[in-house]
Amino acid sequence: MRLPPRFVNTLVALLLDLVALGTVGILVVIVCVIVVKGIAYIDLNFLFTYPEDMGRHGGVFPSLIGTIFLVALSICFATPLGLGTAIYLTEYTKETMMTKTIRFGVESLAGIPSILYGLFGFIFFVIKLKMGWSLISGALTLTIMILPTIIRTSEEAIKAVPRSLRIVSHSLGATLWETTLKVVLPCAAPGILTGIMLSIGRAVGETAAVIFTMGSSLRLPTSLFDSGRTLAVHFYILAREGISMEKAYATALVLVVSILAVNILAYYIMHKVIAKYS
């Protein structure tokens, strides 16, 4: 027996509607659980005091600072490199075998799982370069990890800049670099910023690559060669070792809210740009 196509059509439309809502529901449930369970244990004190007794009491101040340092450093390293790559690929060369190879490299980097970055960072920065478990080892490892995101988004942003602008600039006698710097980049800035935001989100939430390169010392890192524990690693240890569920939820709340905020901001900027160009 065959069902009438119109009936199937309506049924499927309804089903897909439910599935999509259900999937968004997963996100909503995750965020709600973290917020509801964590909100009771979080206050300014939690953010700005030192942990005591392995994190069973007290706050997450050193982890907060450690995370900010780590992410800021890796963004500082990765942005010029990524932006440079994107500019080179879009403005300075045509599609050749070489650019294809570079793109292949970027794609491959993007596909490598974070644990392999951890493994590499551990053997290269921590052991071979003798940097130890430190802020700098962690930052350099993360730099390589977020590079593909920055390159891809910057490249897309730069490509989206209308060709006519470049032609006008060239015809006025500007060199390629002057055109890039004064015409292309300002137009592409919001898109590039989106890429940076997304990278920040990724770096803040990373655990596997960080725990083996930055270590897990609970102290406040005061130099580049100090070990430290990021919020994500701190949360992992709190939750996994059952040290304190309250502190774990509170840390998760800080983590999830800050990542979502950064991501939402990134989408907002992107949306603005798309609205502007279309």
Partner: peptide, 16 residues
């Protein structure tokens, strides 16, 4: 804005 941004990034790297 980008020029300023690049300068800030540059300065930050030197400081680091």
């Amino acid at each position: 804005a980008v020029v300023t941004f690049m300068r800030v990034v540059g300065a930050a790297i030197i400081c680091l």
